[in-house]
């Protein structure tokens, strides 16, 4: 039962990595698009691509939070009392990002548009970095069961920095792949080319970071390294292959296929983390079962997940299909 809920939680984490990640990555390309005039086509593509979907994309984060604090309250407070600095910074980043994006969208060209655009773009890079450091702190077992771990070394450490950098590059890769498809749909070859270059660049950088990560994890988190190289290995291999295939098919393959391959690449990486950590929620000191809430509460969460599958999944499909068919905007 508690394993089931942990699985549901991880599905939420994966969904946030995919949908939220593509959103954050779009912000990365917004930041690096260049001056107001040169970057305009890129920023307009980003605007129309994510405006209708970004709020739904970020609801996955809320889903993860409520699931963890309801099902595993002890683990939740252990994290918040240890990793409060990166979590606090991520929360502020989310405010700056969401408001900046909404304001920019509503404003006409000018200084107000520029300021809100900068707020959106900068926080789009910082926020996933902080989430990555949080993931690194948890994965490397730096969050004690009782909480109140070291407020600095819990997220300023090799694994966390790796997590942060990997999060930013993976988000950028994912967004570039998605935006290449969007440009293709809008029959805009120059933008399509520009984003496919970006996707290549980001994909290669993400690959390199992952390679460096092998050594970092070997030195800094032996247990995680061991688990990833044994039970997690098949997932990581699939991830690498799909990521590569997506890059090779980027401009030749059909966008849905390329999108799916990129999504599988991310899903398997995050799932690899989950598998490597099982059956522990925190390090090797708090198991999923130990941290679980009473059964009645877990049943409520099962019910909520069931309703989500029945009600939210078709609604999300409706939203994304309307968006892809350019019915929104």
């Amino acid at each position: 039962m508690s394993d089931l809920i942990a699985g549901v939680l991880f599905i939420g984490v994966i969904a946030y990595a995919l949908f939220g990640g593509a959103d954050y990555g779009a912000g990365f390309w917004d930041l690096t698009a260049g001056g107001a005039a040169r970057g305009r086509p890129v920023r307009e593509l980003i605007n129309v691509s994510i405006s209708p979907v970004w709020e739904a994309n970020h609801t996955w984060l809320i889903f993860c939070f409520v699931t963890i604090w309801t099902a595993f309250p002890q683990a939740f407070t252990a994290m918040t009392t240890t990793l409060y600095i990166p979590l606090g910074l991520a929360a502020l980043g989310i405010v700056a990002r969401g408001s900046g994006f909404a304001f920019r969208h509503a404003l006409a060209r000018g200084r107000g548009e520029w300021i809100s655009g900068v707020a959106f773009a900068c926080s789009s890079v910082l926020t996933p970095f902080f989430f990555g450091t949080v993931a690194g702190g948890i994965a490397s077992g730096r969050v004690p069961s009782a909480g109140h771990g070291d407020p600095l070394s819990s997220w300023v450490n090799p694994t966390s920095v790796l997590g942060g950098v990997l999060a930013v590059t993976v988000c950028a890769y994912l967004a570039a792949v998605f935006l290449t498809g969007q440009a293709q749909r809008r029959a805009d070859p120059p933008l399509e080319k520009a984003f496919s270059h970006r996707a290549f660049g980001a994909g290669i950088v993400a690959g390199l970071v992952a390679l460096v990560g092998v050594f970092v994890l070997h030195a800094d988190s032996p247990r995680l390294f061991h688990q990833l190289s044994t039970v997690g290995a098949p997932l990581l291999v699939v991830s690498g292959l799909c990521g590569l295939a997506a890059l090779l098919l980027l401009r030749r393959g059909s966008p849905p296929v390329v999108r799916t391959l990129a999504a599988i690449a991310i899903t398997t990486v995050v799932a690899g983390w989950g598998v490597a950590q099982y059956p522990y929620l925190l390090g090797t000191h708090l198991t999923i079962q130990q941290a679980a809430a009473p059964t009645a509460t877990l049943w409520v969460l099962i019910l909520v997940s069931f309703v989500a599958v029945v009600l939210i999944a078709p609604s999300l499909l409706l939203l994304y299909s309307l968006q892809l068919r350019r019915k929104l905007g």
């Binding site: 609801t59 409520v66 604090w69 309801t70 407070t77 939210i312 309307l322």
Partner: peptide
């Protein structure tokens, strides 16, 4: 949250569902 999460927390999970619906349909 640490102590009463199992009781105080789950209404927010229900809220999450509604918020999801709201965010999706407000966008549409």
């Amino acid at each position: 949250m640490g102590k009463y999460g199992p009781a105080f927390g789950f209404p927010f999970a229900v809220e999450g569902l509604f918020f999801f619906l709201e965010a999706i349909f407000v966008a549409i």
